[in-house]
Design a protein around this nucleic acid. Structure first.
Lengths: 192, 192
DNA sequence: ATTTTGTGATTGAACGTTCATTCAGTCATT
DNA sequence: AATGACTGAATGAACGTTCAATCACAAAAT
């Protein structure tokens, strides 16, 4: 009962790494199996087919992001502090888990992310919406649509993490400039 | 000499449409050829292989974006006006050319977008950098790294266009909120 | 305590399909 | 007659998926 979940997690982790590195096309099931230390057929005891595997990874990834950010959110703090903590934690999480960041970016824009998937409940999406909704209710941020707010903030964090990775070697003094962007966004959405 | 370029453009356009709809994997060369009204083999007179085709599309797309935005830029106007015009034109272009928007989004995060491609000169990227550099030189915006500025602005426009498409039917009053975001960014980068 | 039986995961070779790519032959233009 | 684009059937490699056989292990029977 225990090793079964471990094996499933191994498969997901192996696929995550490969997809981040090579993309969906260049990540054959046979390689995913090899890297996970199982036979190709074994994957089909856990997932109906390759598409189900990819969607399973997405669900896992969404769960992990939500867990990391929500565990570190303290609703009793002032909303401004919570916003900066949210921003920092999401950034940290992506930097600690580059394969998740890479996968998520690819998945979101891919045809795997169908209307059906998008309309399913999504713990991370829901958490982010409620987070911004609570800021609106407290009168701390403008009454924008929380869905729009969450997409805006999340995609900016996403972009910044990607920029940091690309320029890691070339320009080190950018770090400060990039952290400025969180202030820029906060100033834009806060109620004066 | 004329119909040759037309045929190449047909192939690129056909691939663009298919990739936006189905992604790289589900866009076989045979289908691209069929939609372009040529035989499969013909594609190989214009492109060495499928990867070269995809990179060729990227180069075409980058050229088109640059053309649209730069043609509508008037350097003699105040920089604030130029900024809003840039924002609007990029948004308009993506909305007028959804297949380019979809392709660009997918390509940027894909393994096709190698370090080699990223380090090659890129007319659109260069234009955007020079655009923000001129704002800095005029003392109208903060002296942030122009590369960072252009990625920030472009990825926000990208996100907003995607949000608009997703919510086109569900929420029509979002339009106003989304247009607010350009002011938010401008307020963040302008020099007071 | 030992053997037998049953259950369900695991394996990896084999299968059928799909796809990128080739190329001998055809067509169009000069 | 010559050149070069164009065709599309043919090729072979790669891939997702299947399945008969094997294995691991626990419950039941002796």
């Amino acid at each position: 009962m225990h090793s079964l979940l471990d094996k499933k997690k191994c498969i997901v982790q192996s696929a995550l790494d490969l997809i981040q590195e090579n993309g969906f096309h260049a990540s054959p099931v046979s390689l995913v199996a090899k890297n996970a230390g199982v036979a190709a057929g074994t994957i089909y005891t856990y997932f109906e087919n390759k598409e189900a595997l990819i969607i399973g990874i997405y669900e896992y990834v969404v769960e992990e992001i939500k867990k990391y950010v929500s565990e570190r959110d303290d609703p009793s703090l002032p909303f401004k502090d919570r916003f900066y903590t949210y921003w920092k934690n999401l950034t940290d999480f992506y930097e600690l888990n580059p394969s998740i960041h890479g996968f998520y970016d690819q998945f979101i824009k891919s045809p795997f992310n169908s209307d059906e998937i998008q309309s399913k409940p999504n713990v991370w999406h829901d958490f982010a919406c409620e987070f911004f909704e609570s800021g609106i209710k407290q009168g701390k941020i403008k009454a924008l649509n929380p869905i729009v707010l969450s997409i805006l903030v999340n995609s900016n964090v996403n972009s910044i993490v990607r920029i940091k990775q690309n320029f890691k070697k070339k320009l080190s003094q950018n770090k400060m400039e990039l952290d400025e962007i969180s202030h820029l966004i906060w100033d834009g959405i806060k109620v004066d």
